[in-house]
């Protein structure tokens, strides 16, 4: 496998997203030397966004300033990424653990005849191969894969790696290889984005902190206690199936086997008993806190910290304490 490592970056509102920086951190551990990580950015704002990568130890950025890529699917960017990987003779391409990163990983792997893995929490070189660890079965197990081949694509897991610091420097900018993008890929396009409002559902799978409410919240109007704590922590709001089935909150907020799977740094379950259905959506969270008035609730078996008490008293106190601690 060629030692070269390419990171395919993602821009949101003209800024490099955190998961791209996390991928850069992994790339630096795999690249043969410092400053040898190359990042590809695509879209009309890629040149401006490239500058901030210098602070994270990136020495070289390829930019494809094709404005059509601003609203094109990941499949179109995979065409550019494949050309870039070939031009660099890279052996490994890394992407962030976002929806874009997942789409790109599969597309690029097929186009570049590579082997691939997603959701990686550990990526190391093993001779000519890569060894990747990743949670599976909703975090109920972990597998180690050996990616054996001349070309590998890896999407990392969100929050599993830190964005690297580096001495501020200006990366060299170059145009990405010019390549023709097939017409059907440009005929598909994003027609709009409604930005995620603070603490609302869409950020759920990406949030570093998730606060979820369950049946114990008792009524839809009480759910604001959960939302206030989530807001104080800068996190996202989730809900158990009981809550979404009852229509207290939309189904997009449901965490569980039939809803979303989340793996934040901190998961706080409020008034949630801990049915297996729910556990399968959050068990891979790094630290779990449970607040419940029933000391025998199964959630306490999987939690790291437990508070047995009345959530209507605990939550306001906790929100106030969090605000104090964060100075907000």
């Amino acid at each position: 496998m060629s030692p070269g490592v390419l990171v395919v970056g993602e821009l949101h509102d003209g800024r490099v997203v955190p998961s791209t920086l996390e991928a850069v951190g992994v790339a630096r551990t795999l690249a043969p030397g410092p400053g040898e990580v190359v990042v590809l950015l695509a879209g009309s704002r890629s040149r401006a966004a490239a500058a901030e990568l210098g602070a994270h130890g990136v020495g070289r950025v390829l930019v494809s300033e094709d404005a059509r890529l601003d609203t094109a699917p990941a499949a179109a960017i995979a065409v550019v990424a494949t050309a870039a990987a070939r031009a660099l003779d890279a052996g490994t391409v890394l992407v962030g653990g976002t929806t874009f990163g997942r789409d790109l990983a599969g597309r690029l792997a097929a186009r570049w005849s590579a082997t691939a893995a997603t959701g990686a929490t550990d990526v190391v070189r093993d001779g000519t191969a890569l060894r990747v660890r990743r949670p599976v079965f909703g975090g109920r197990a972990t597998e180690t894969l050996r990616l054996d081949g001349p070309r590998c694509v890896v999407a990392i897991r969100p929050h599993a790696f830190a964005a690297p610091a580096g001495s501020p420097s200006s990366p060299t900018l170059e145009a990405a290889p010019a390549v023709e993008i097939p017409a059907p890929l440009l005929a598909a396009r994003r027609t709009g984005v409604e930005p995620t409002s603070a603490g609302a559902g869409p950020g759920l799978t990406d949030a570093a902190v998730v606060v979820s409410g369950g049946r114990g919240v008792r009524a839809p109007e009480n759910f604001r206690l959960v939302e206030e704590l989530a807001a104080a922590l800068g996190g996202a709001v989730g809900a158990s199936r009981a809550v979404t089935d009852a229509g207290w909150r939309p189904a997009t907020l449901q965490v569980g086997q039939t809803g979303k799977t989340v793996s934040p740094q901190l998961y706080i379950a409020v008034g949630i008993s801990g049915a297996i259905q729910h556990l399968m959506g959050m068990i891979s969270s790094r630290v779990i806190v449970a607040v419940n008035n029933d000391a025998t609730a199964p959630i306490f078996k999987v939690a790291d910290y437990g508070i047995v008490g009345d959530l209507f008293q605990i939550l306001p106190a906790l929100t106030a304490e969090v605000r104090r601690a964060r100075g907000t």
């Binding site: 949101h12 699917p73 929806t99 027609t191 995620t196």
Partner: peptide, 12 residues
């Protein structure tokens, strides 16, 4: 639903 928000798309 992505990290960037609720996206609307169309495709042939």
């Amino acid at each position: 639903s992505t990290e960037g928000g609720q996206e609307k798309w169309e495709s042939p």
